[in-house]
């Protein structure tokens, strides 16, 4: 546990959305385990089930907090990742104003906000790694880099513990590719703005 190293976050609500098969459940699990088990924060995670999780728009939600988590679902999303247009449309209605929004630039032509970071996660996975299925990991790498809600080291540890044996180098590469992509896109270093504390004004 490296609780001391982790900057204070308050409560951050993360929603990862896409279609079944894009690996968003795994991405959610890795994020939750990285934040919870390696960064020492409290975490809660829920996900889509049933037909929705296989086809259609599916999602995984992760709450990351410094305090015990009471409400375990997203109610004001701080961090939104969308890998399909359908998911971007279906699950963006409760974004907090100014929320970090990351979308796949090829698959989401109409992002929910003008401030959305458009990055070609799937194209990079397909072209640079020849494995389109690791788009989720590329996205995770970018997400961590942009937001700092989870440490890069924790993310890598959690990821390598979850992926099938033999795919570790590929996944590691996908993660750093995502991070690099985000840095280049932002045109700046990894010193990211801290997320605002969860707004409680109801």
């Amino acid at each position: 546990m490296n609780q001391k190293e982790s900057p204070s976050l308050g409560r951050v609500e993360v929603r990862l959305a896409g279609s079944g098969g894009q690996g968003l459940l795994l991405a959610g699990l890795v994020l939750a385990e990285a934040a919870g088990l390696h960064d020492g924060r409290e975490v809660a995670m829920v996900q889509s089930y049933g037909p929705e999780a296989r086809g259609g728009a599916s999602k995984a939600e992760v709450i990351i907090s410094d305090a015990a988590i009471d409400y375990p679902l997203c109610s004001r999303v701080d961090l939104f990742l969308a890998l399909t247009q359908e998911a971007a449309d279906a699950y963006s209605w409760d974004l907090k104003p100014g929320a970090w929004t990351l979308v796949d630039s090829d698959l989401v032509k109409h992002p929910p906000t003008s401030r959305a970071l458009r990055l070609p996660f799937t194209a990079v996975a397909r072209e640079k790694l020849k494995k389109p299925m690791v788009a989720n990991v590329v996205a995770l790498g970018a997400l961590a880099e942009v937001t700092g809600v989870v440490s890069r080291r924790g993310l890598e540890k959690a990821l390598l513990a979850r992926v099938p044996p033999g795919t570790e180098p590929l996944n590691k590469k996908a993660l750093s590719l995502g991070a690099r992509m985000a840095r280049e896109y932002l045109g700046q270093d990894a010193s990211q703005p801290q997320p605002e504390a969860h707004s409680e004004d109801i």
């Binding site: 939750a32 919870g36 975490v43 809660a44 995670m45 829920v46 375990p72």
Partner: peptide, 10 residues
């Protein structure tokens, strides 16, 4: 219930 049963927590 479905939320508690499917939810993951530390």
């Amino acid at each position: 219930d479905e939320v508690v049963a499917h939810m993951r927590e530390k």
